[in-house]
């Protein structure tokens, strides 16, 4: 029996971080996905990208894959926690309608980045997904690899309170975790980034320190409250003008602003639900306007 105490060193044969990312892009491009670049706005999860949220609605087929940088201000640890980051990457795949062989396709992607299913224990463990801010839910799993959660796998049932017909299958890879698993490192900052000497820490450690300080200490809360209000108003105005896409950007903005306010600790427990409710109302409004704009039946 092998003693599994953590003495692992970086696996020299494993893919560097960026190679993994490129490999996933190529793999899903080969499956017919549109490869998008990250959305140019701050957001808490790749699901917020309109290529997922809005494209999951309506009858038209859609396949896309993209990297999305995610901002989670409350998860910032000034670069001192080996696994928690306020900025990290998700790799997001959306397949609509979800194909019958989606699990096989997903497992194929793991194989492509060097996870051997004959060596590692891959498991689909029940995890139902719900986003209160997007008014969305689905059923699926978290995918475990040797006990570590490496992806979220969801069949969307509703987005913005509307039934998804057809159903989209969503895959979300936590890229840093996956890379830590593949490379066998215990500290995210030790990840080999490019295979040519740069580590994840070289690229992002200072960013984590400064952004954590901003999120927790310096973000101007008066301005943020004003921003939140402004985004809400702007969104409503754009919805009236039947412009769901720019309206949805204001929804994304208000969601991130709320996350920043939350990190600053200025939103009480009771107010929290009310704020989430306000963002959800915007998201629902955008989804509804998007459906109308496209002339789809509700």
């Amino acid at each position: 029996m092998t003693d599994s105490s953590s003495t692992a060193k970086r696996n020299p044969d494993a893919m560097p971080f960026q190679k993994m990312l490129l490999t996933l892009q190529n793999y899903w491009a080969d499956q017919g996905c549109v490869i998008l670049q990250p959305y140019d706005m701050e957001m808490g999860a790749g699901t917020f990208h309109p290529a997922t949220t809005l494209k999951a609605l309506g009858p038209e087929p859609w396949k896309a894959a993209y990297v999305q940088p995610c901002r989670r201000p409350t998860d910032g640890r000034y670069g001192e926690n080996p696994m928690r980051l306020q900025h990290y990457y998700q790799f997001q795949v959306i397949l609509k309608p979800s194909p019958a062989n989606m699990q096989e396709l997903y497992l194929g992607s793991l194989k492509a980045i060097g996870i051997d299913a004959e060596l590692h224990d891959i498991r689909f463990v029940e995890d139902d997904w719900e986003s209160p801010t997007l008014g969305a839910w689905g059923l699926g799993w978290e995918v475990w690899c040797d006990g570590m959660e490496v992806s979220q796998y969801t069949y969307f049932q509703q987005v913005g309170g509307f039934d998804c017909k057809p159903v989209s299958g969503e895959l979300t890879y936590g890229l840093e975790r996956l890379a830590m698993f593949v490379q066998g490192v215990d500290n995210v900052y030790d990840l080999d980034f490019n295979g040519a000497g740069a580590t994840y820490g070289d690229v992002f450690l200072e960013n984590e320190r400064q952004q954590s300080a901003y999120n927790f200490e310096h973000a101007d809360t008066d301005k943020l409250f004003a921003d939140f209000k402004k985004a809400q108003e702007e969104c409503a105005k754009l919805l009236e003008a039947e412009l769901p896409l720019p309206a949805y950007e204001q929804c994304i903005k208000s969601s991130h602003t709320f996350n920043l306010l939350d990190a600053r600790g200025v939103i009480s427990v009771t107010e929290r639900q009310a704020y989430i409710g306000r963002v959800r109302d915007l998201a629902k409004g955008c989804c509804e306007a998007w459906i109308k704009k496209n002339g789809w039946e509700v």
Binding site: S4, A8, L119, D121, D146, G147, M148
Partner: peptide
């Protein structure tokens, strides 16, 4: 061995 090691790290 790999499975046990992986779980140990998690």
């Amino acid at each position: 061995a790999a499975v046990a090691t992986g779980n140990g790290r998690v």
